[in-house]
Design a protein around this nucleic acid. Structure first.
Length: 274
DNA sequence: TCCATCACCTGAGCGC
DNA sequence: TGCGCTCAGGTGATGG
């Protein structure tokens, strides 16, 4: 499922294949995904050039002269470039038809994704309701142990829940939260408000390292994710704990434990993580 | 303000 | 083989 690394891999693919190209048409095959798909996308985008591909958290932002196409891949979404005339498969919900007839195609079986439009006349895209409340980017200068420490004082939720909430740091989903907490040696159930600054420093370093490594490996393909050329990622081969319940810890050999937190699976090593 | 829970959705996997 | 159930999980809405 797409987290920050997967969206970043997609963004790079879109930047390479689509930026600078002109949109000829938009074909939406479903009226809504998580939210209604704007019905006037074809009128808005036909004849417009894709100026840039940005990412904010797990949102992909395709910039046009008049605004931004906001795409969220949800849990099962993927974007791929298809040859002209390629017939849609089941769950191919939306095509951007480019000037040469090739297609930027959104595939999303679970339909938890979203396609939205933010008009430039309504202000910068960062002011969009879905983006305005997001926390800092983990690769930005604003991201630090001090920020994490300060933002979680007094919070009784678990440290993993604090990472997933997205109001402090963005882009860390269920997989990478478990992996980063393992690398930092912090048990996921620890109350966020009781984590000391030195441990936040280890966690901040681990978050950056885990996400960077995942991007280098093309993301994770644990279930649905593929890149814009249909390629799988390889990070899942390097997971220390995620989806490894009962298997020996790669560091100490202790059996990896699986628990439920807020209806989500959490994996950790009871020996390495305290 | 913070936190927990629910809802949305479909495919895979499992037991019967 | 087919049916029904559970699980997977990102995130907004809701209520305590």
């Amino acid at each position: 499922m797409p987290e920050l690394p997967e969206v970043e891999v997609v963004r790079r693919g879109v930047a390479e294949a689509v930026v600078g190209r002109t949109v000829r048409d938009v074909l939406a095959r479903v009226p809504r995904l998580r939210w209604p798909v704007p019905t006037d996308l074809a009128q808005r985008l036909a004849g417009q050039v894709v100026r840039a591909a940005h990412r904010r958290g797990k949102y992909l932002l395709m910039e046009f002269d008049t605004g931004w196409l906001i795409v969220h891949l949800g849990m099962s979404g993927s974007l791929s470039v298809a040859a002209p005339g390629t017939p849609p498969r089941t769950h191919d919900h939306l095509d951007l038809v480019l000037d040469d007839g090739s297609l930027l195609r959104l595939h999303d079986p679970r339909r938890f994704g979203a396609v939205l439009w933010h008009d430039r006349a309504d202000g910068p895209v960062e002011s969009h309701a879905l983006l305005a409340r997001l926390g800092v980017e983990p690769f930005s200068d604003a991201f630090s142990a001090e920020l994490l420490h300060r933002a979680t004082r007094g919070r009784t939720a678990s440290v993993k829940q604090a990472l997933l909430a997205g109001d402090v740091v963005v882009g860390v989903g269920n997989i990478y939260a478990s992996e980063a907490l393992f690398r930092a040696g912090i048990r996921p159930t620890t109350r966020a408000g009781r984590v000391r600054l030195a441990r936040w420093q280890r966690l901040a370093d681990a978050i950056r390292a885990t996400l960077a490594e995942a991007i280098d490996k093309g993301g994770s393909s644990l279930r649905d994710f593929v890149g814009t050329q249909g390629q799988s990622g390889y990070f899942q081969n390097d997971c220390y704990v995620y989806d490894r319940a009962g298997q020996p810890c790669r560091v100490c050999g202790t059996a990896i434990r699986a628990i439920r937190q807020q209806q989500r699976s959490t994996y950790y090593c009871p020996s390495c993580q305290r």
